[in-house]
């Protein structure tokens, strides 16, 4: 396991690349999700007034 994490000495480069990708991809995927929730929570009383 430790050997896997060390990535042959390139741990910093490999893992920061994967971490960046993970953060951006997950972030981009959750944005519509919480927007949708916020829209639904506002629910009634907003629609026509806008």
């Amino acid at each position: 396991m430790a050997e896997f994490l060390a990535m042959g000495g390139y741990a910093f480069y490999v893992w920061s690349a994967y971490a960046l990708v993970a953060i951006v991809l997950i972030g981009n995927a959750t944005v519509p999700w919480w927007r949708h929730r916020r829209l639904k929570n506002k629910g009634a009383g907003r629609g026509r007034a806008r």
Binding site: P32, R35, H36, G47, R48
Partner: peptide, 25 residues
């Protein structure tokens, strides 16, 4: 993700329509 994002935008931009109101309620 594109599908999800378009779907939310549609709901936002069509907020005045009846169907959007039904969805939100």
């Amino acid at each position: 993700v594109l599908l999800a994002r378009i779907r939310v935008r549609v709901l936002e931009q069509e907020a005045d329509r009846q169907w959007a109101e039904e969805v939100r309620n």
